[in-house]
Design a protein around this nucleic acid. Structure first.
Lengths: 353, 353
DNA sequence: ATGAAAGCGCTAACAA
DNA sequence: TTGTTAGCGCTTTCAT
């Protein structure tokens, strides 16, 4: 590749003059700049960013660590964050890591590459080394929050979200309600199950009627658990999910098993991925403004990186959610009527939580 | 951040000994290595990759340029490629660029960062500068193919794909078939429309019955065009899409307009995004093995990068597609019967093209 | 088995 | 307005 030295030789100026011209330094005459720029174009010179970083310059690279890019949630985050970064002149280096070892390995690479900052959705219990590295890299946490780490955090109101969704079902008269969510132990899962239980308390409903299922956020687990629940002696009359992936898996299973919704089972989904509105009678679901979350996070973080504004390390920000009521939820035990009214609705009723 | 020099001072060895120990050089005694590694852990030393690159080392970073990460197609690619890279010890730097200016800007950054290689889905007509830069960066093209560039290409059999989908509709007796696809000019769009037309030729059908619509792969365009078509004096009896985004938009519109499928209209979709199987009577669609494509591409490319295997610059590879027949397509003009048989099917019939 | 020193491409302090 | 020079952190001869 062409170096500044070659540009200097070709143009007859010194290396530093070339450097300054490229940095648009005020001390270089307009004419010289033009001349150098011509040579640059001719030779196809491309700046060497690593060399600049070695000298102490900042890298303009933001690491983004996500558990799964095919999940609509995270794809939206990647998209919004990438847009932010682009506007501020940053690049996104991204890493898909769904287990602590991959996470650790990738983080080491990102730190080694001297990224300017890091946006991370941490795994359930990161390795010691990961935690140690994080203390040397400027970062924010997204969605999930490590109890051990005091770094800034941006997330959604998981507890309130599940509480409101569960309340919706309780209000319709359901009691045997099943919660199906990701692995217990994740900060998000903790908050969500808390919201689920809170709704039962608030409604003076018997907590013994509640069913709680935790597992991997995979299609396999979703299929397995919904089949088991429906086959049990006392199947739930309603189900609420606490993960996008699980929601997809459950919708798929219910569709294949031809379960009549909401006649046999009322369903509340998590997230509002494309297609949820046309599933069966339309899926009642918890919609998160994940794009706003990511944008808020990106703007705040990049601003802090650029302006070196330190100060408030304990920043945290929560985005509210909405309950989108479609056809998949109805009053308990009204089979006949439901079968008629469970047609796709033209306009979704949207409620702010 | 801690440097090798600091590790050297702390451990009492020289910088070069530290460097060699970290590289696991055979000449360093086991004991010295252990000692140095202890200091490394204690101080939290992290290798400085930019410094290594400046010295001429390779970067282990692969650039990935995609038009849209929220599109299931591209998310799948990002996922598969990221997995490949991870296994081979590479990182993915990614760029979302849907217009030639963003594309050019990002490519300049990636080249500046001295990425080891680049996987790119190029925009419709990249800028001169982009093309020039590409000649200095090792890369492969994915899906779309620039006529001007002789670089390796990995894609799907677009022509055959659309031909088979259209044939399916022609076989069912449809003649007024509408093709709705992305912007003409893209290599993929060219191939797809060619396949559409070929099917008409092969079936001795009157090409004048065919309707062709090109536009942006946006929800807006999809909504607009399907509404216009159905409102026209002679609406099509079937429609086939040539883009995932447009498929989603059209499905959404048809669902909202309560169009009876396949009684009023037969529908063939493009791609097989989550939710397509439970749309209406189940969507008949063209399924591409995009994951295999990306993996094939990744393995080939990384192998060539690592082993410096040059030779065949003109490599190109094509992945076939499948027609997944579900409930959204049926014989033309059989309204009454269709209304009964258009229930979700339990098992999809899958045909190899 | 280990150390000293050169140099990668760049920027910035110091000269002129 | 432009040139000279030092040095960022690392690897790699060459020397010991």
């Amino acid at each position: 590749m062409v170096t500044a030295r070659q540009v200097a030789e070709e143009s007859g100026f010194s290396i530093s003059t070339v450097g300054r011209a490229l940095a648009d330094d005020a001390r270089i005459s307009v004419e010289t700049k033009a001349q150098i720029r011509r040579v640059v174009a001719k030779l196809g010179y491309v700046e060497n960013i690593p060399a600049r970083i070695v000298r102490g310059g900042s890298s303009k690279m933001i690491g983004l660590m996500l558990p799964d890019i095919r999940n609509d949630f995270y794809a939206t985050i990647a998209d919004a964050l990438s847009e932010c970064c682009d506007r501020e002149g940053y690049q996104v280096v991204f890493s898909i890591a769904n287990d602590r070892d991959t996470e650790c390995r990738h983080l080491k690479e990102l730190a080694g590459a001297r990224v300017a900052g890091l946006v991370i959705v941490p795994t359930q219990s990161p390795r010691r080394e990961t935690l140690a590295l994080l203390r040397h890299v400027k970062h924010v946490q997204l969605l999930r929050k490590l109890p051990s780490s005091p770094s800034p955090w941006f997330g959604i109101d998981d507890e309130e979200c599940l509480r409101a969704g569960t309340k919706h079902l309780l209000d319709l008269g359901h009691r045997r309600i099943a919660y199906i969510g990701g692995p217990a132990g994740l900060s998000t899962a903790e908050a969500r199950i808390k919201g689920f239980r809170r709704a039962f308390l608030d409604a003076d409903a018997n907590a013994a009627d509640a069913i709680e299922e935790f597992g991997q956020t995979t299609v396999k687990f979703g299929n397995e658990v919904i089949t088991r629940l429906l086959d049990s002696p006392k199947p739930p009359t309603a189900v609420i999910m606490a993960s996008i992936q699980i929601t997809k898996a459950v919708l798929d299973s219910l569709h294949r098993m031809r379960v009549s919704v909401p006649a046999e089972l009322s369903v509340v989904g998590f997230g509002d991925a494309p297609g949820f509105q046309w599933w069966g009678p339309g899926l009642t679901t918890l919609r998160m403004q994940i794009q706003e979350l990511a944008t808020t996070c990106g703007l705040w973080f990049l601003h802090h990186l650029s302006n070196g504004a330190s100060g408030e390390l304990h920043h945290s920000s929560v985005i509210p959610a909405q309950l989108v009521v479609r056809g998949s939820t109805g009053p308990v035990g009204s089979t006949a009527q439901r079968k008629i009214t469970s047609m796709p609705k033209d306009h979704n009723r949207i409620r702010k939580l």
